[in-house]
């Protein structure tokens, strides 16, 4: 990293990081029927943290991520695997059969929750975690 970080970049990164994370979650949630999904969402989220890393340094990006990226990959894989067995244990259907639940939420009305969404959440965490593992490793090797 450069010894003197740009003021504009660091100010912008502070604002852009939450926006990009929010946008990535938006992409994750709309992904089932529309363009988006866990993979793209994870990449967008990772780009937010990478920007943060460019603006500050790797330890700041690590701190902003809150969770170790490798742990995140593991948890994401656990969630994705578990989403496949929900239907099996609840309804006795074959593995990875999609399960749908309709939930009524005040103000928003009816919402559809599904096991593909949980799977996508796992994918999101795996993508975010693995991209951040790569980026942080590269950045730390350079430092």
């Amino acid at each position: 990293m450069t010894s003197m970080p740009s003021l504009i970049l660091s100010t912008a990164a502070r604002v852009l990081l939450p926006l990009l994370v929010l946008f990535s979650i938006f992409l994750l949630l709309r992904g089932h029927d529309l363009p988006g999904g866990g993979f793209i969402g994870g990449l967008v989220g990772a780009s937010g943290y990478t920007l943060y890393l460019f603006a500050f340094d790797s330890s700041a990006a690590r701190a902003a991520l809150r969770m170790d990226p490798r742990t995140m990959v593991g948890l994401g894989l656990v969630i994705a695997t578990l989403s496949g067995v929900i239907g099996t244990f609840v309804r006795g259907e074959p593995f990875f059969t999609s399960q749908w639940w309709e939930v009524y939420v005040p103000i928003f009305g009816e919402m559809k929750l599904s096991s593909p969404l949980i799977f996508d959440l796992g994918v999101y965490m795996v993508v975010l975690g693995s991209v951040m593992t790569i980026v942080l490793t590269l950045a730390e090797a350079e430092e």
């Binding site: 170790d68 490798r70 742990t71 894989l77 074959p94």
Partner: peptide
């Protein structure tokens, strides 16, 4: 539904993911 067929794939996947999640320990 035959859980026993998919289990030999799911068990190592699950434990692999779990041991990645606790990779510090």
């Amino acid at each position: 539904m035959r859980p026993e067929i998919a289990l030999p794939i799911l068990i190592p996947l699950f434990f692999g993911a779990l041991s990645l999640a606790v990779w510090r320990s």
